[in-house]
Design a protein around this nucleic acid. Structure first.
Lengths: 209, 209, 209, 209
DNA sequence: ACTTACGGGACCACCCGTTCTT
DNA sequence: AAGAACGGGTGGTCCCGTAAGT
C-alpha cells in the first residue's frame, strides 16, 4: 500500500522533469548540478533519485519526450505553423534540444542511447516527402532537396530563437522561403502567391514592384 | 633571451590551440579535461598553462579567432561562397562554434567575455545591410528581414553539418534561397539559369508571375 | 526531518572542529591538507564540507571561538588566573592562536575577515582599563602602559608555552610582574608576602625604600 | 675562470636573501611562492636556484643567520638595549623569526635542521645567568626565573611589534619590568631606582606618590 | 650566469550517488 | 517517500624544481 496516490507520484515526476528542464536550459547539462536541481525543484536528492536513476536518465527523458515535435507540426499543419511553433514555443525546450544535439556529438554513451530511440521513431521519410509535394513545393528540383532546405530554415530559426537574436517577421519569412530573396522585377501573378500565403494562414499582402 | 626561438613559441601555441580545438569539438568544453588536453597535445600542464592562463582563456581564443569567419565570407564573396565555406570547412571548427554559442547561453562569465569582444568587433551592421542591397536582394521586403533570413539559412546549414545530417546540393540550395520553394508556374528554362546563378552565387533573377 | 538528531549534528561538528584544531596545531594552516583533516577526523570530504563551507571557514571558526578567551579571564579573574590559563590550557589552542596571528599578517583576506569580527567584539577598551585600575595597578604610570606591559607578559608566556621552552613558576612570575626584577634593598620577609600575593593574584603591595 | 667576480656572486646572494626575507615576512613561507620570489628579487628561477638548492634552504639561511641576535644584545648591553633593538629593528626580521618558530612546530624536517644548528650555538646558559646576576637582578628569587621572566617580556614585545599593536613607551616598560606594576604606596628610595634607570640609559624620572 | 619552457605532483573544491534515518 | 549525512572520485589550478638553451 503506497503512502501516496499514483497521481501524486506522477505529479512529482512531472515537477521534477519541469524543474530539470529549466535547469538544463539555463546551465547546460554539466552546469545543472544536482544541487541546482534540488533548488529548482524544491525537492532533495532522495526525492529526485527516487524517480530517476541518475542525472543522465533525467536528461534522456526530457530530451527524448519532445524531440520530434516541430517536424510533426510541419507535416501536419505546414511550414507557417512550424515556424510559428518555433517562435512561440517554450524557449527552455529549444535550449534542451540544442544541449541534446551537443551531447549526441560529444558523449558516446548518450549518442548510443539516442540513436536507439531515433531508430524506432524514424519510419517513413517517404510519406513525409509525399506530403511535402502535396503541400505545393516546386517540382523542378529534387524533392529531398526542398525538404533539406526547409529543415535548414527550421533549424536556423530555432538557433536564432535560442541565442536570443531578433526574430524575423513570420509573414515575411514565409514569403521569402516561398519565393526567394532574388530581386523583384516582374509584377505578374500575385494571385498565385496570394494563394500560397493564404495556405499558411498569413494575411494577404501585396508585393510592390 | 628566451630559451627557444620566437618561432618555436608560436608553433607551440598553435599546436596547443589545434589540440585543444580537437578536444573541445570531440568532448565539449567540460568534457575536454586538462588530462585530455595533455594527451591530445602530448604536452604537460606546465607547458599548456605556460601559454594560456587557464582553460577558459584557451577556449576563448579558439572560439574568438574564428567567430566572424563565415559572415565575413558571406559579405565579401556572397552567399554561395559562405555556404560553401560552411560545407567544406573543418568540422571541428563548427563544433567549437556550437559549443561557444551554448556557453554564451549558460555561462554568464563567458557571455560577458564574448559580449565585450563582440562590441569592439561589431561596428557597422548598417554597412552590411547596404552591402546586402548591393548584392541584389529584392527590395519589396525590409532589408533586415532578408538579412535575418539569410543568416537563418547559414545557421541552419551549419547545424546540419555539425550533427552530420546529409547535406544539400549547394547549387540547388542557392536556387531555393534565391527563388523560393513555391510552385513553378512559368516554363522558361529555369534550370539553365539557375545553374549559372548558382555557379557564381549571383542573386540576379527574374521572378516569373 | 533530518536524517540524524540535532545532537548528533552538533557532536559531529565538534568532532570535526577538534580534529581540525589538532591538525592546524600540528601542521599549520597550509600543512593541514584536507586529506589530513579527513584522516584526523576519520571522516570524508563529503562529511567535513557538509558542516563547513571550506577550509578557511573551519579555521576561522576555530580561531574565532577562542580568540578572546585569555584576556577575558584576565579581566574577570586577574592576572594570576590568566597566566594559569595560558600554562594549563590545551597546547593546540595556543598553536592555533599563533597560526591565526601569522595568517592575519600574511593573508589579506583572512585579515579582513578577522578585523570585521574584532570590530563587533571590541566595544570598550575604556572599561577594560577602568577594570585594570580597580585591580590595583600603580597609578604613577599611564594606565594604558600598564595594560600593554601585562599583555606583553601574557603574549610572551604564550609563545614560550607554544614553542615548548621551560615554563616559569607562576608564583614567582606573578611576584616579578608585581614588584619587578630590580634588586631588593629591603629585608622585610618579602618571600612570605610574595607567596600570599601570588596565591590570589592580588596586586596589593608595599614598595620598600 | 668565472664570468663574474666573487664579489658579484656574493652580492647576488645577498640580494636574493634580502628579497626572500621580505617575501617570507609578507606572505609567510607557503605564501612566498617562487614566482613571488622572482618578482621581488627581479631575478628568475634559474638565478635563484643557482644560489640556493631550494626554497627550504633559502629560508633556513635567512632564519638561521639572525636567530640569536636579540638575546646577544640583551646580555651585552642590557635589557633596555634589547627592548630598543626589538622596537627599532627591521620588522621583516621579526616576521621571519615568527615564521621560523611556527615552522619549527609544524615541519619536522625543518625542526631537525634548526635543532642541529641550535646545539652548536647554545653552549653556556650558565655564563648567561651569571651575567644576569651581575646586571643587578634581585636575588630573593631563583635567577633562572628572572631570566625566564625577561625572555617572556622580550618575546611578548616582539609579538606585539610583529602584529602591529601599539608599542609601549620604553622608559615606562623598563620601569615596570624593574619595579613591577603593583600600586605605589611608599615614597622611599627613589635614588636606588634612579640608579637602575640610569644604567639602562633612561632619563631620570621621579615617581610620584 | 641567467632565462624560460616544461614536467608532473598535490591541493582544494565540487559533485554525484548512496545510505541511513525518520 | 523523502531528507540529509556522507563517501570518494575527479577537475582545474598552482607551484616547485629541472633542464634545455643563450
Amino acid at each position: 500500500m503506497p503512502k501516496v496516490s499514483e497521481l501524486h507520484k506522477e505529479r512529482r515526476r512531472e515537477e521534477i522533469l519541469a524543474a530539470a528542464q529549466r535547469c538544463f536550459a539555463k546551465h547546460g547539462y554539466e552546469g545543472a548540478t544536482v544541487a541546482r536541481l534540488e533548488e529548482e525543484s524544491g525537492l532533495s536528492r532522495g526525492a529526485i533519485f527516487n524517480y530517476f536513476e541518475n542525472k543522465e536518465a533525467l536528461f534522456v527523458e526530457i530530451a527524448g519526450r519532445t524531440s520530434k515535435q516541430v517536424t510533426d507540426v510541419w507535416f501536419e499543419h505546414g511550414l507557417r505553423a512550424a515556424l510559428e511553433e518555433i517562435v512561440t514555443m517554450d524557449a527552455d525546450w529549444l535550449s534542451v534540444q540544442m544541449e541534446s544535439t551537443r551531447r549526441v556529438l560529444t558523449d558516446p554513451k548518450f549518442r548510443r542511447h539516442v540513436e536507439a530511440k531515433e531508430a524506432e521513431l524514424q519510419a517513413g521519410s517517404a510519406e513525409r516527402l509525399a506530403k511535402l509535394r502535396e503541400l505545393g513545393v516546386r517540382d523542378d528540383v529534387p524533392i529531398e532537396q526542398a525538404g533539406i532546405f526547409l529543415s535548414i530554415v527550421l533549424n536556423g530559426l530555432a538557433i536564432r530563437r535560442t541565442v536570443g537574436d531578433p526574430l524575423p517577421d513570420l509573414d515575411t519569412l514565409v514569403e521569402l522561403v516561398d519565393s526567394g530573396i532574388g530581386p523583384r522585377r516582374v509584377k505578374k501573378s500575385p494571385p498565385a502567391r496570394a494563394r500560397a500565403r493564404a495556405r499558411d494562414g498569413r494575411p494577404s499582402r501585396e508585393t510592390p514592384g
